[in-house]
Write a protein that binds this DNA or RNA. Structure first.
Lengths: 113, 113
DNA sequence: CAGATATCTCAGCGACGACTGACACACTAT
DNA sequence: ATAGTGTGTCAGTCGTCGCTGAGATATCTG
């Protein structure tokens, strides 16, 4: 017997296995920086080059380039050169990847089912 | 005249006003910690007390209590005592607030319209 | 060619935040 | 009352991460 000392004391579930949150956590970490979050928001209305984003953010180009590299490694943005301006690097959102990332965060904020 | 030196060089938009991302940023910062993210995921299947969460996370109660305080200040979780167990503090998700937070993140990851 | 512009990379520094440890408070049991 | 349990608070420490600065690469202009 497990000796129910107190009649109605709820038994603790100490064996709970913590769910895997790696995927949504990685997305949240990316979004948890003001510059990266703002970049994603700016790119919602079309592609922009690094110097435009840097000017909008009031940050230096190399810093913005670093953030864009992080976003690109995660697949949220794409880099491309335009034929009319091969000197600048234009970044645009990968809407499919962004939607997938948004869905991942649902595992933290949406009800279970 | 503005002297179009290069015929088709796209003009930069250096006057871009960065959009306000404070609200979704605050949510992302909250989710960008493994323990807080895991807590939110665990609470998806019902209320749990601090010691249960601490055991599941392999963390100490005071640390978990700190994270729960952060989540509570943001309104994502509620604390309540149950009549059957007035000693422990039970935490449960505020599903409405979680859904609202999820919608806020849409301003970063969802297409513009 | 040299010079200017735009971007990328990376080592080093500094600040923010999570964890620790100690303590306080509330409630229960003996 | 005393001991034990569960939770909350907070100062201090330490690791992590964003920013800086310097340098490299690539493209265009004169």
């Amino acid at each position: 017997m497990i000796s129910p000392a107190s009649p109605t004391l709820p038994e603790l579930r100490l064996e709970l296995a913590p769910p895997d949150v790696e995927a949504p956590l990685a997305i949240a970490v990316l979004l948890a920086d003001r510059n990266r979050a703002t970049i994603l928001a700016i790119l919602r209305d079309g592609p922009h080059c690094v110097c435009e984003l840097a000017a909008a953010l009031g940050e230096r180009s190399n810093n913005v380039s670093n953030h864009l590299a992080r976003l690109r490694e995660a697949g949220l943005v794409r880099a491309s050169r335009q034929a009319a301006d091969t000197r600048r690097m234009y970044y645009e959102r990968d809407e499919a990847a962004c939607a997938a990332a948004f869905a991942q965060l649902g595992a933290l904020l949406e009800p279970k089912r």
